Simulated assay, not measured.
Amino acid sequence: MSAIKLPQLPDRTPVKLAITVLPDLHQALQDYAAHYARVYGKQAAVGDLVPAILASYLESDRGFLQSRKQI
């Protein structure tokens, strides 16, 4: 079998993660979902938005990204 330019894809199997949040964070997430609906004209459940919010946050944290390069 010959090699190809594209590397093997990483494991993309979703991992279920359950968390408990305080009422004020829950309300903020609901408010964010409502704002998202106003901006984009379609509803999105908080549970669908949280992974995107977390990914965006982690991708923008320079200190975290620098520390990951050192690992």
Score class of each variant (00 low, 15 high):
46 V>Q: 01
16 K>M: 15
36 Y>D: 09
35 H>D: 13
41 G>P: 01
61 D>C: 12
51 P>Q: 00
6 L>Q: 15
8 Q>P: 13
54 L>W: 09
7 P>E: 02
17 L>R: 02
54 L>P: 05
50 V>W: 01
57 Y>R: 13
38 R>V: 08
14 P>H: 04
25 L>M: 10
35 H>L: 10
16 K>Q: 14
40 Y>G: 02
20 T>L: 13
38 R>K: 11
33 A>I: 00
53 I>W: 02
40 Y>H: 12
38 R>G: 04
43 Q>H: 15
63 G>Y: 14
36 Y>G: 03
68 R>Q: 15
50 V>N: 00
17 L>I: 15
24 D>K: 11
40 Y>N: 02
2 S>L: 13
52 A>G: 10
64 F>S: 03
54 L>C: 11
5 K>F: 15
58 L>Q: 05
19 I>G: 00
37 A>N: 03
63 G>H: 12
12 R>G: 04
41 G>T: 01
58 L>G: 03
5 K>R: 14
16 K>V: 14
58 L>E: 09
23 P>S: 04
71 I>E: 10
56 S>I: 08
68 R>E: 14
10 P>W: 08
8 Q>C: 11
24 D>I: 08
44 A>M: 06
43 Q>F: 14
50 V>H: 00
4 I>Y: 09
62 R>H: 09
49 L>D: 06
44 A>V: 08
42 K>C: 11
24 D>N: 08
69 K>F: 06
22 L>F: 13
18 A>P: 05
21 V>T: 00
37 A>R: 00
35 H>F: 10
4 I>A: 12
36 Y>P: 05
45 A>R: 07
29 L>V: 01
34 A>C: 06
26 H>C: 10
50 V>R: 00
53 I>A: 01
5 K>Y: 15
4 I>Q: 14
43 Q>R: 14
33 A>P: 02
28 A>T: 04
52 A>D: 11
24 D>A: 15
66 Q>T: 12
21 V>R: 01
13 T>V: 06
54 L>M: 09
51 P>T: 02
39 V>C: 03
42 K>I: 12
54 L>R: 14
70 Q>R: 06
2 S>C: 08
57 Y>W: 15
44 A>H: 04
9 L>Q: 14
5 K>I: 15
35 H>R: 15
43 Q>L: 11
71 I>V: 12
54 L>V: 08
36 Y>H: 10
30 Q>A: 11
12 R>M: 13
20 T>S: 12
26 H>R: 15
14 P>D: 10
67 S>G: 02
20 T>D: 09
7 P>R: 08
69 K>H: 10
14 P>M: 10
47 G>N: 07
33 A>R: 03
50 V>S: 00
18 A>Y: 07
39 V>N: 01
2 S>R: 11
37 A>T: 02
23 P>V: 06
38 R>C: 04
1 M>Q: 02
38 R>Y: 04
71 I>M: 12
65 L>C: 07
64 F>L: 13
10 P>G: 01
71 I>N: 08
34 A>T: 08
7 P>C: 03
58 L>V: 10
57 Y>C: 07
59 E>C: 09
33 A>C: 07
5 K>E: 15
30 Q>L: 12
60 S>Q: 13
12 R>F: 08
57 Y>P: 04
